[in-house]
């Protein structure tokens, strides 16, 4: 009898979870689109907007990178923008999980972003940004999450490729798009850096998931054969830095206020070479 009662509780829980996840209401599990649908929207947005290029009048530039701000609160986010401006950063990169996905948190995030004129920003969505049907908010406010931008200096140009891994996979369309961009454009640029939210390797135990092994291998092959120098990710909330093949895989500490290890990542191009360091608020 007790077994049957327990079984009923489990079945009820699973049923509630199932219907909640399928719901079009703005609940936590509401994802109203697949990764392929999001990528199609992003690529359509890209085709209707001019290609993004930063022109720097110096051979050296610095880009500040962060992920996992999980707004709500904005203490560290404000400090991050402030440090980036004081350091004369050419741009900031925001690699997903920027807020909780709630409408109110998207409002807070948008209100705390510096204007594009004062500090150019390049963003990608993370898994938390999709909750509460958050993709619609993300897309309507910030646009594409699958695109590339370039940085042109007198000595040469670099390409940054931004990918949407908020669902734990690139999906078919984005994988094909990435292959084409690398195949057709990589050789025109000096450095190639990939930005995405989901970390690749599971080098530490965590409840969050990385990409599947087959996809990791396919991407690592693509990055090696096309000389991708660096992949910058977040998601795991613990910084990591390792070289696999010729590609350096970076995981950033989270920016969120409640994290004891809150931090960011500073990417510097000096004499055409990549230099970098992890930053903290201590």
């Amino acid at each position: 009898m007790e077994f049957l009662t327990n079984k009923k509780i489990v079945l009820t829980f699973i049923t509630v979870l199932f219907f909640e996840s399928c719901s079009k209401d703005e609940g936590y599990f509401s994802l109203n689109e697949t990764v392929d649908q999001r990528v199609e929207q992003s690529l359509d947005w890209d085709s209707k907007n001019p290609e993004r290029e930063l022109v720097i009048n110096s051979d050296e530039y610095t880009i500040f990178c962060m992920a996992d701000s999980h707004v709500g609160t904005t203490g560290n986010l404000d400090r991050f923008f402030s440090i980036a401006k004081e350091s004369d950063a050419a741009a900031v990169i925001m690699a997903g999980d920027l807020c909780s996905g709630r409408l109110s948190d998207y409002d807070v995030l948008e209100n705390h972003m510096p204007s594009g004129d004062s500090l150019p920003r390049f963003m990608v969505a993370g898994n938390h940004d999709l909750h509460f049907a958050g993709w619609n908010e993300y897309f309507s406010r910030f646009g594409s999450s699958t695109y590339f931008f370039t940085v042109r200096t007198p000595a040469g140009s670099d390409i940054f490729i931004c990918l949407d891994t908020s669902e734990g996979t690139l999906g078919k369309i984005q994988f094909s798009w990435l292959s084409n961009v690398l195949k057709n454009m990589r050789q025109n640029y000096r450095q190639c850096i990939v930005i995405t939210h989901n970390n690749f390797f599971r080098v530490k135990q965590a409840e969050s998931t990385s990409l599947l092994p087959e996809e990791i291998s396919a991407l690592a092959e693509l990055f090696t054969t096309n000389r991708v120098e660096m992949v910058i990710t977040g998601h795991d909330h613990r910084k990591d830095d390792r070289l696999f093949g010729i590609t350096r895989y970076i995981v950033m500490d989270p920016l969120e206020d409640k994290a004891d290890n809150a931090g960011f990542f500073v990417l510097k191009i000096r004499k055409g070479e990549i230099k970098y360091n992890f930053g903290s608020f201590e």
Partner: peptide
């Protein structure tokens, strides 16, 4: 049937 991103609670089809 393989899903990606299962424990991220933002998951989709993989294979």
């Amino acid at each position: 049937y393989e899903l990606a991103g299962f424990t991220n609670l933002a998951f989709g089809y993989f294979g």
